[in-house]
């Protein structure tokens, strides 16, 4: 015989069979508990996760009162980027608004299709200008459409309190991502997609 099956005594056979039956019932008890528990999935377009402030989504550049980014075109972010997806071109600024911004940005493109959202660019920024925010809804049909120019990176609105707190002390806001309360979820459930 090519292989031999293990031989069991009657007692072992009974114990194996009975434990198989009982463990099947135990498994069914587990699954029925899950059946009656609330699903953990989030019905995305109708229901969104409340993202924490430290979520690394797309890039934004903080601007001053005149709408000009704080960027000094130093190129630290482009050098910090492991994927080389930031392209900066700059020229001399004829009328610098302050001593720092003596160079003017001509081009600041970030290839979001190539970016891996590590956040090293934001960490490298000496002006605390470039930052990654909790926005992930910017899909496009073609990868070349995902190259974000400077104009879509500007962030005119000031930082929220939570963002400021996080930037002051990154360990201060450990709140995890939570789905919205279930009532609103069921309202969206029947909607036509």
């Amino acid at each position: 015989m090519a292989f031999s099956l293990p031989q069991y005594s009657w007692r072992e056979l009974w114990e194996k069979g009975w434990s198989g039956f009982v463990t099947a019932l135990k498994g069914m008890r587990v699954t029925i508990r899950y059946f009656f528990s609330r699903p953990t999935t989030v019905v995305y377009p109708y229901q969104r996760l409340e993202l924490p402030v430290y979520y690394r989504g797309r890039h934004r550049q903080r601007v001053d009162a005149n709408g000009i980014p704080w960027c000094i075109a130093c190129g630290s972010c482009a050098r910090a980027c492991p994927l080389e997806c930031i392209h900066i071109e700059a020229s001399a600024n004829p009328e610098p608004p302050d001593t720092k911004r003596r160079r003017k940005l001509d081009r600041f493109d970030i290839d979001l299709a190539r970016c891996m959202y590590c956040g090293l660019c934001a960490e490298a920024c000496p002006q605390d200008c470039l930052m990654l925010v909790a926005d992930y809804e910017y899909s496009a049909w073609r990868p070349q459409d995902l190259v974000a120019p400077l104009s879509v990176q500007l962030r005119p609105e000031p930082l929220s309190e939570a963002e400021l707190r996080y930037r002051a002390d990154p360990a201060s806001d450990p709140a995890p991502a939570k789905p919205k309360p279930p009532r609103e979820a069921s309202a969206g459930e029947g909607g036509e997609g």
Partner: peptide, 11 residues
């Protein structure tokens, strides 16, 4: 779906 903590068909 519900046994696997999903919702199954919805829309």
């Amino acid at each position: 779906g519900h046994i696997q903590s999903r919702r199954g068909p919805l829309h």
